Deep mutational scan, measured.
Amino acid sequence: MQFKLIINGKTLKGEITLEAVDAAEAEKKFKQYANDNGIDGEWTYDDATKTFTVTE
């Protein structure tokens, strides 16, 4: 399945997509990506659109 991450950071904004088996795997990958890029914020997930959002 394809999942999307919307980044609303203080210095980094944008979207990325990835393939994952389920939402838990996608969340783990997205949070690792955010951590690697210094993004720390409030996370939400919309199951209907398979979209994660992180807002700093």
Rank of each mutant, 00 (worst) to 15 (best):
G9S: 12
I7L: 05
I7H: 04
T53R: 09
E27F: 13
D46L: 05
G41I: 02
Y45W: 11
G9A: 13
A26E: 00
D46E: 11
A48L: 15
Y33N: 02
T44P: 00
K13Q: 09
K10V: 11
I16C: 04
Y33S: 02
I39R: 01
K29M: 06
N8V: 04
G38E: 08
G38K: 14
Y33T: 04
D22G: 07
T17S: 13
K10E: 04
E27V: 11
G14C: 04
T55E: 13
K10L: 04
I39L: 09
E27S: 12
K31L: 08
T17I: 09
N37H: 11
K28S: 10
K29P: 02
K29C: 04
E42C: 06
D40N: 15
E15F: 12
A20W: 03
L12E: 07
K13E: 06
D47M: 12
T11I: 09
D46Y: 12
A23P: 15
I7Y: 07
A48F: 14
I6F: 13
F52A: 01
N37A: 14
Q2D: 03
G9V: 06
W43S: 01
D46K: 06
T53K: 11
T53V: 08
I6C: 04
E56T: 06
N8Y: 10
D47A: 09
K13S: 06
T44K: 12
K50L: 14
F52D: 00
D46C: 05
E56M: 15
E42G: 11
F52T: 01
L18K: 07
A20Q: 03
D47V: 10
I7A: 02
K29G: 10
T53A: 13
Y45L: 02
V21N: 11
T17F: 14
W43L: 04
D46A: 07
Q2H: 13
E56W: 12
V54Q: 01
Q2S: 13
K31A: 05
E27G: 07
T55N: 09
A34M: 05
K10P: 03
I39Y: 06
Q2G: 08
K50W: 11
Y33W: 14
T55P: 01
K13N: 15
E56A: 14
E19C: 05
A26I: 02
A20C: 04
T11M: 08
N37C: 03
T51P: 00
L5W: 02
L5T: 01
G41W: 10
T51C: 04
Q32F: 13
F30C: 03
I39M: 09
D22V: 05
I7P: 01
V21G: 10
K29V: 08
E19Q: 12
D40C: 08
I6T: 07
G14H: 10
W43Q: 01
A34L: 06
I39S: 02
A48V: 10
D22P: 01
W43P: 01
T51S: 11
I16H: 14
M1Y: 11
I39E: 02
W43R: 00
L5C: 03
I6S: 04
T51N: 03
K50R: 09
A20F: 14
K29I: 07
F52V: 01
G9W: 08
D22L: 05
T11A: 11
L12Y: 13
A34I: 06
V21L: 07
M1W: 09
Q2E: 04
F52H: 02
F30Y: 03
A23S: 13
E15C: 07
D46N: 10
G9H: 13
D22S: 14
Y33K: 03
D47K: 12
L12A: 15
N8Q: 08
T44N: 11
E42H: 13
G14P: 04
E25H: 12
F30W: 02
L5F: 06
D36S: 10
I6L: 15
A26Q: 00
E15T: 08
T53L: 13
Q2P: 08
D40T: 05
E25G: 08
F30E: 00
F3D: 00
E25L: 05
N8I: 10
T17L: 14
N35I: 13
N8K: 10
F52L: 01
K28Q: 15
N8A: 11
G9M: 12
Q32K: 15
E42Y: 14
L12S: 07
T49W: 05
G9R: 06
T11G: 08
F3Q: 00
E27M: 13
N35C: 04
L12R: 05
I6M: 05
K4Q: 06
A20V: 06
D36T: 14
K31R: 09
L5I: 03
G38W: 12
F52P: 00
D40Q: 10
T17A: 13
D36V: 15
K28I: 13
Y33I: 07
E56I: 09
K50D: 04
E56H: 12
T55M: 04
K31S: 05
V54E: 00
D36P: 02
F30I: 03
Y45I: 02
L12V: 12
Q2A: 12
I39F: 10
M1R: 06
F3H: 02
V21T: 07
T17C: 03
A23I: 12
F52K: 00
E19V: 12
E27Y: 15
V21C: 06
L18Y: 11
T49I: 10
V54P: 00
D46V: 13
V21D: 14
T51M: 08
Q32G: 12
Y33F: 07
Y45G: 00
K4S: 07
V21A: 09
M1N: 15
W43G: 00
Y45A: 01
A34C: 03
Y45C: 02
T44C: 06
K10Q: 11
A48H: 05
G38S: 08
E19H: 10
F52Q: 00
A23Q: 14
E25K: 06
E15G: 09
D40K: 14
F30Q: 00
K28P: 03
M1I: 12
A23V: 13
A20D: 07
A48C: 05
A34H: 01
G38R: 11
K4L: 11
Q32D: 07
D47Q: 07
I16E: 09
F30L: 08
